[in-house]
């Protein structure tokens, strides 16, 4: 039997053709090269400022929260969905967790605006944040999978509801007293010289990549996004998978909520309205198809860094930072266009 297989495989299957390599480059390789080129350009033009370890570590910290949200968004978009609610679910989860932490920690901390809450309080806050995020994610998932309402509408609705409830709970003002432990050890803390926030983001991305690319759940995410009907007929529980995918995205928004509270030492009700678009563009820049079925976590990591590196480089070069918005928008349109070209190229065979 093996003898029968090998001739065919050697001649036809194993060596990727030039066309396949070209498609692979179109698929995600080019955006990585673009990122490297940007870094190289800024590093050559302003080596002292851009290449400094302080600047690089700030780049990574700026990317950390967005990356955690984008990992969840990657799962959702590969499953041919969309999650517009990530930013305000983050806000909701940060408010509920901050209120719980405030309630649990009595005295003020040594620094102004913090409380004395220790690791126990932080842990309780984390649990509340994760549950809050998971709750909104599950609501999204059930409405998409069971009620069969389009994800765009469902998550636009929960986008508003999560933000509204967060404002109702606090009368619209941020919770500014958060545990000192959280701010000092997580928000500003480092482990072996690496900011803790960055470590959390790296761990989330690594775990997300393993689950997406190596597990059965990950295969089913691709299958649901590629052809939902085929997945259903193959015996995959599409509803359960969709609910799990949206719940995962919500839960990661809960993780990001704790990171945000830790970093800014306050909740940030007004600061996350654009997170959904930022994550979607990061995911799409990273080669994940808006039509589902194609994508990777590695691509999303690259996609998260493109706008952040652009902004940083423009600031250092003295270019008005508003140009970053223009440049990111242009790269995003380019990315989707290349995705379309790639699809057409493949469908021609």
């Amino acid at each position: 039997m093996t003898a029968a297989i090998h001739p065919a495989r050697e001649t036809e299957a194993d060596a990727p053709s030039a066309a396949e390599r070209w498609q692979h480059l179109l698929g995600g390789g080019w955006i990585f090269i673009l990122l490297l080129a940007l870094i190289a350009i800024f590093a050559v033009l302003r080596p002292a400022q851009f290449g400094s370890s302080y600047n690089l570590s700030m780049l990574a910290v700026n990317a950390a929260i967005l990356l955690v949200l984008s990992v969840g968004q990657t799962f959702v978009i590969i499953a041919a969905g969309i999650d517009l609610s990530v930013g305000t679910v983050l806000v909701f989860a940060s408010i509920t967790s901050a209120l719980v932490m405030l309630h649990l920690s009595g005295a003020s901390g040594s620094t102004y605006g913090t409380t004395s809450g220790g690791w126990g309080v932080v842990l309780a806050g984390l649990v509340v944040a994760l549950l809050s995020g998971a709750f909104w994610g599950a609501v999204n998932g059930v409405l998409v999978a069971v009620a069969r309402i389009p994800a765009l509408i469902v998550t636009l609705g929960t986008f508003g509801m999560a933000l509204g409830f967060a404002q109702i709970m606090t009368n619209g003002t941020d919770v500014r007293a958060v545990p000192e432990t959280l701010v000092d050890r997580i928000g500003a803390g480092t482990l072996a010289g690496i900011p803790v926030l960055v470590l959390i983001a790296v761990a989330t991305a690594a775990l997300g990549g393993v689950v997406l690319h190596l597990t059965r759940f990950g295969v089913h995410v691709f299958a649901v996004g590629s052809n939902e009907e085929a997945a259903r007929r193959s015996g995959i529980d599409v509803r359960a998978r969709l609910i799990a995918i949206y719940t995962l995205s919500g839960t990661l928004a809960g993780v990001a909520a704790m990171m945000s509270t830790a970093r800014f030492a306050t909740t940030t009700i007004g600061g996350h309205a654009m997170d959904n678009l930022a994550t979607i563009s990061a995911v799409v820049l990273g080669g994940t198809s808006l039509f589902g079925g194609i994508g990777s976590i590695a691509g999303t990591v690259v996609g998260v860094f493109i706008p952040i590196v652009l902004l940083n480089g423009f600031v250092i070069l003295g270019i008005p930072p508003f140009w970053q918005t223009v440049a990111t928008g242009a790269v995003l349109v380019l990315a989707v266009w290349i995705d379309q070209l790639k699809r057409r190229a493949r469908e021609r065979g």
Binding site: V219, F222, A223, G225, S226, N227, E229, A230, A231, R233, S234, I236, S289, G292, G293, I294
Partner: peptide, 14 residues
């Protein structure tokens, strides 16, 4: 009822 983005072997084991 095939998943067009997946490889033949992945479809066989869907």
């Amino acid at each position: 009822a095939l998943a067009p983005e997946l490889a033949p072997f992945e479809n066989l084991f869907l």
